[in-house]
Design a protein around this nucleic acid. Structure first.
Lengths: 232, 232
DNA sequence: CGCCAACTTGATGGAAGTCAAATCCAGTGG
DNA sequence: CCACTGGATTTGACTTCCATCAAGTTGGCG
């Protein structure tokens, strides 16, 4: 049902409601939000919006992974956030987006016109609570990210990142990377070479195993936590 | 009126309403919030709350400066945010604070019981809008901070920081540092020595002057902007 | 099977950290 | 008023971690 051509990216939500309900933990307010949403699809590596584009919509990820990044004039790139199913983004109220959103994998989104979101959040306590909760989660995550980039070593960042991915998908020992090594480096504020070296080091220490490039297995959770916190 | 003894830190807001109205841009909702607030005072370097303290209140800065930081087990410290008059903090809804709040100068705050804030934000659109606006501003600032820590050089960070302070107080050329060099270093993810060296470099280039330790004058705004963006 | 992009590993250099010492004040007491 | 003291800041010498540059290696896909 969602395999519509990419060129025909927008379809009204009503066409495929069942596909959406249940993808994320709804909270009653979501139903109201969904009614005003439009489904969109993007292929891997496509840009959803760019920094400084006019910002008319807020989004929710239904399927796949998205990243928010900023690119400096000389090409340095920093990823501010990885998003997966259930996450909302572009919730700020500037006229222009302050970050670029790109699809890491093939992605299905719902977009909500901002004017409507605002109106709904005034009228419906559930919608409002969900938006607030989303903003708070993102703020808290951003603050953790600040600490990591400001004060952790390369080894600590890579270990923390693995733990973060493991926690997010609930799995205690199996981690999936939907993103490339370059994306990981740009999230961790490192180079791709350093990320590789640190992963190799973790392999050598038998803390992790990497069956393929997009998966890892945590063999020694406690050791990984130690490394993330700076041995101690 | 606000010179009550530090030991007698809490006084009901009604005692000094006039002192507060007008300190920040109120937005009508503030009046409702203020009615449930309690005034508190802290001296320079005092801790307002610590990471992992039970979080019962949200706060607004009325006067002075506050910083939010995290300290790692081995003592590394990262400041996530500097706050000044008008700013709100501790708006998340975890049971425990995720950051430590310290007074950089003598500080006057209002604290709001969280239960009440939540109730009010349901009942009063203005309060809600103000909270949301606050969260969005903080998220946006945190994302900028992430980019800085992830991808900017020491010189760029120091220059960006000066511009940030200049912009915040509206002054085009006069900057005030309420915080110590160590605090600046902990905000920028650098050491105190590196901050000093970069400030000295800016002085040598005649981009800034430092009449005393807590003030700077921007002599060449354009040059400072160039340096902040990586020359180019 | 071979190509090409993504990844990994190795060698070297540089930006920022660490350690150490000098200097500057703000506040104190004579 | 001024010398004194201790903490904050500044400057200098050296080291380290991570970036850069370079050369393989892997594996997904035509």
């Amino acid at each position: 049902m969602l395999d519509m051509a990419i060129s025909d990216r927008a379809a009204h939500f009503f066409d495929s409601r069942e596909a959406i309900v249940g993808v994320f933990e709804p909270g009653n307010g979501s139903l109201a939000l969904e009614r005003i949403g439009t489904i969109m699809q993007f292929a891997r590596h496509e840009t959803i919006f760019s920094e400084s584009d006019v910002a008319r919509h807020a989004y929710r990820v239904l399927k796949g992974s998205v990243c928010l990044s900023r690119v400096m004039i000389d090409g340095r790139r920093q990823i501010a956030q990885f998003l997966s199913a259930g996450d909302m983004f572009a919730l700020d109220d500037n006229d222009e987006h302050s970050l670029t959103a790109e699809a890491l994998t093939d992605v299905t989104l719902v977009s909500y016109p901002r004017s409507q979101v605002e109106r709904l959040s005034d009228d419906m306590p559930e919608v409002r609570r969900e938006l607030m909760a989303s903003l708070r989660r993102e703020l808290s995550a951003a603050q953790d990210h600040v600490v990591m980039l400001g004060r952790q070593t390369a080894a600590e960042r890579v270990a923390s990142f693995m733990l973060q991915l493991a926690k997010r998908r609930g799995a205690r020992d199996r981690v999936e990377f939907p993103m490339s090594r370059q994306d990981i480096a740009d999230y961790l504020g490192l180079t791709i070479e350093t990320v590789c070296r640190e992963l190799s080091e973790l392999k050598k220490l038998c803390v992790i195993a990497t069956p393929d490039r997009h998966h890892a297995i945590i063999r020694d959770f406690a050791a990984l936590e130690m490394i993330a916190l700076g041995d101690a």
